[in-house]
Design a protein around this nucleic acid. Sequence first.
DNA 1: GCCAACGTTGGC
DNA 2: GCCAACGTTGGC
Length: 155
Amino acid sequence: MSPRPKTWLMKSEPGEFSIDDLARVGREPWTGVRNYQARNYMRQMQVGDTVLFYHSNCALPGIYGLAEVASPAYPDPTQFDPSSDYYDPKASRAEPRWDLVDVHYVRHLRRPIALEEIRRHADALGEDFALIRRGSRLSVLPVTAAQARLLLALE
DNA sequence: GCCAACGTTGGC
DNA sequence: GCCAACGTTGGC
Protein backbone atom coordinates (compact mmCIF):
# COMPACT_ATOMS: atom_id res chain seq x y z
CA MET A 1 0.00 0.00 0.00
CA SER A 2 1.58 3.25 -1.12
CA PRO A 3 1.24 6.31 1.07
CA ARG A 4 -1.80 8.53 0.48
CA PRO A 5 -2.70 10.99 -0.67
CA LYS A 6 -0.56 10.78 -3.74
CA THR A 7 0.09 13.60 -6.16
CA TRP A 8 -0.49 13.52 -9.91
CA LEU A 9 0.03 15.97 -12.73
CA MET A 10 -2.69 16.31 -15.35
CA LYS A 11 -2.33 18.29 -18.56
CA SER A 12 -5.08 20.22 -20.24
CA GLU A 13 -5.07 22.66 -23.10
CA PRO A 14 -6.50 25.85 -21.59
CA GLY A 15 -8.34 26.53 -24.85
CA GLU A 16 -10.23 23.32 -24.19
CA PHE A 17 -10.49 23.30 -20.41
CA SER A 18 -8.50 25.57 -18.10
CA ILE A 19 -8.07 25.94 -14.35
CA ASP A 20 -10.45 28.92 -14.64
CA ASP A 21 -13.06 26.62 -16.15
CA LEU A 22 -12.58 24.16 -13.31
CA ALA A 23 -12.94 26.96 -10.76
CA ARG A 24 -16.22 27.94 -12.42
CA VAL A 25 -17.78 24.48 -12.59
CA GLY A 26 -16.26 23.15 -9.37
CA ARG A 27 -16.08 19.57 -10.51
CA GLU A 28 -15.45 17.97 -13.90
CA PRO A 29 -15.02 14.51 -15.43
CA TRP A 30 -11.56 14.35 -17.02
CA THR A 31 -12.73 13.19 -20.44
CA GLY A 32 -10.72 12.42 -23.51
CA VAL A 33 -7.63 10.59 -22.29
CA ARG A 34 -6.84 8.09 -25.06
CA ASN A 35 -3.46 6.82 -24.00
CA TYR A 36 -3.15 3.54 -22.14
CA GLN A 37 -0.42 4.61 -19.76
CA ALA A 38 -2.34 7.75 -18.78
CA ARG A 39 -5.50 5.69 -18.37
CA ASN A 40 -3.70 3.22 -16.15
CA TYR A 41 -2.50 6.03 -13.91
CA MET A 42 -6.06 7.28 -13.55
CA ARG A 43 -7.07 3.78 -12.49
CA GLN A 44 -4.53 4.02 -9.68
CA MET A 45 -5.95 7.29 -8.40
CA GLN A 46 -7.95 7.48 -5.21
CA VAL A 47 -10.39 10.08 -3.97
CA GLY A 48 -8.49 12.83 -2.19
CA ASP A 49 -5.29 12.54 -4.20
CA THR A 50 -3.80 15.87 -5.21
CA VAL A 51 -3.70 17.00 -8.85
CA LEU A 52 -1.29 19.57 -10.23
CA PHE A 53 -3.28 21.24 -13.01
CA TYR A 54 -0.97 21.85 -15.97
CA HIS A 55 -1.70 24.02 -19.02
CA SER A 56 -0.21 22.66 -22.23
CA ASN A 57 -0.13 23.94 -25.80
CA CYS A 58 -0.36 27.57 -24.78
CA ALA A 59 1.72 30.74 -24.49
CA LEU A 60 3.16 29.86 -21.08
CA PRO A 61 2.99 26.14 -20.39
CA GLY A 62 3.17 25.29 -16.70
CA ILE A 63 1.33 24.41 -13.52
CA TYR A 64 -1.51 26.82 -12.81
CA GLY A 65 -3.51 25.35 -9.97
CA LEU A 66 -4.40 22.52 -7.65
CA ALA A 67 -7.28 20.11 -7.88
CA GLU A 68 -8.27 16.93 -6.10
CA VAL A 69 -9.39 13.54 -7.34
CA ALA A 70 -13.12 13.42 -6.63
CA SER A 71 -14.12 9.95 -7.83
CA PRO A 72 -12.62 6.55 -8.47
CA ALA A 73 -11.96 5.72 -12.13
CA TYR A 74 -15.02 4.85 -14.21
CA PRO A 75 -15.68 4.51 -17.95
CA ASP A 76 -15.34 7.73 -19.94
CA PRO A 77 -18.82 8.22 -21.45
CA THR A 78 -17.44 10.11 -24.47
CA GLN A 79 -16.02 6.86 -25.86
CA PHE A 80 -19.59 5.67 -26.51
CA ASP A 81 -20.82 8.89 -28.13
CA PRO A 82 -20.51 8.96 -31.94
CA SER A 83 -20.90 12.73 -31.93
CA SER A 84 -17.94 13.20 -29.58
CA ASP A 85 -14.39 13.96 -30.71
CA TYR A 86 -13.37 11.24 -28.30
CA TYR A 87 -15.66 8.55 -29.71
CA ASP A 88 -13.98 5.15 -29.94
CA PRO A 89 -15.81 2.72 -32.23
CA LYS A 90 -13.88 -0.16 -30.70
CA ALA A 91 -15.23 0.53 -27.24
CA SER A 92 -18.59 -0.72 -26.01
CA ARG A 93 -20.52 -0.37 -22.79
CA ALA A 94 -19.95 -4.07 -22.17
CA GLU A 95 -16.23 -3.63 -22.81
CA PRO A 96 -15.18 -0.04 -22.21
CA ARG A 97 -11.59 0.87 -23.06
CA TRP A 98 -11.17 4.27 -21.52
CA ASP A 99 -11.59 5.42 -17.96
CA LEU A 100 -11.57 8.80 -16.30
CA VAL A 101 -11.81 10.32 -12.85
CA ASP A 102 -13.70 13.39 -11.72
CA VAL A 103 -11.57 16.19 -10.34
CA HIS A 104 -12.65 19.10 -8.22
CA TYR A 105 -11.17 22.55 -7.92
CA VAL A 106 -8.94 23.37 -4.97
CA ARG A 107 -7.20 26.65 -5.82
CA HIS A 108 -5.16 28.62 -8.29
CA LEU A 109 -1.46 28.90 -7.59
CA ARG A 110 -0.40 32.36 -6.47
CA ARG A 111 1.53 32.43 -9.72
CA PRO A 112 2.01 29.83 -12.43
CA ILE A 113 5.06 27.60 -12.25
CA ALA A 114 6.31 27.75 -15.82
CA LEU A 115 7.67 24.71 -17.60
CA GLU A 116 10.82 26.67 -18.28
CA GLU A 117 11.27 27.18 -14.54
CA ILE A 118 10.54 23.53 -13.82
CA ARG A 119 13.24 22.52 -16.28
CA ARG A 120 15.78 24.51 -14.29
CA HIS A 121 15.21 22.07 -11.43
CA ALA A 122 15.57 18.97 -13.59
CA ASP A 123 18.48 17.63 -11.56
CA ALA A 124 16.60 17.82 -8.26
CA LEU A 125 13.38 16.46 -9.78
CA GLY A 126 15.18 13.44 -11.15
CA GLU A 127 15.04 11.21 -14.20
CA ASP A 128 11.72 9.65 -13.29
CA PHE A 129 9.78 12.89 -13.65
CA ALA A 130 7.95 12.28 -16.91
CA LEU A 131 6.94 15.90 -17.46
CA ILE A 132 10.43 16.89 -18.53
CA ARG A 133 11.70 13.52 -19.70
CA ARG A 134 12.87 13.82 -23.27
CA GLY A 135 10.16 12.96 -25.76
CA SER A 136 7.55 12.23 -23.13
CA ARG A 137 4.01 13.33 -24.01
CA LEU A 138 2.18 11.70 -21.14
CA SER A 139 -0.82 13.79 -20.14
CA VAL A 140 -1.39 12.11 -16.77
CA LEU A 141 1.63 11.28 -14.68
CA PRO A 142 2.61 10.52 -11.09
CA VAL A 143 4.52 13.00 -8.97
CA THR A 144 6.49 11.77 -5.97
CA ALA A 145 6.12 13.46 -2.60
CA ALA A 146 9.60 14.94 -2.95
CA GLN A 147 8.88 16.24 -6.44
CA ALA A 148 5.57 17.76 -5.31
CA ARG A 149 7.28 19.47 -2.38
CA LEU A 150 9.94 20.91 -4.66
CA LEU A 151 7.46 22.11 -7.26
CA LEU A 152 5.10 23.77 -4.79
CA ALA A 153 8.01 25.48 -3.07
CA LEU A 154 8.50 27.39 -6.35
CA GLU A 155 5.06 28.95 -6.14
C1' DG B 1 5.32 -10.20 -35.51
C1' DC B 2 7.61 -6.68 -38.32
C1' DC B 3 7.64 -2.15 -39.71
C1' DA B 4 6.20 1.77 -42.73
C1' DA B 5 2.81 5.11 -42.80
C1' DC B 6 0.07 7.96 -40.48
C1' DG B 7 -1.93 10.83 -36.78
C1' DT B 8 -1.17 13.25 -32.47
C1' DT B 9 1.14 15.83 -28.85
C1' DG B 10 3.07 19.83 -27.40
C1' DG B 11 7.15 22.97 -27.11
C1' DC B 12 8.98 26.56 -29.54
C1' DG C 1 3.16 26.97 -38.28
C1' DC C 2 7.01 23.84 -37.73
C1' DC C 3 8.66 19.65 -36.44
C1' DA C 4 10.59 16.02 -33.19
C1' DA C 5 9.06 12.28 -30.79
C1' DC C 6 5.88 9.05 -29.94
C1' DG C 7 1.78 5.69 -30.30
C1' DT C 8 -1.28 3.20 -33.28
C1' DT C 9 -2.75 0.94 -37.38
C1' DG C 10 -2.75 -2.33 -40.88
C1' DG C 11 -0.53 -4.79 -44.80
C1' DC C 12 2.26 -8.51 -45.42
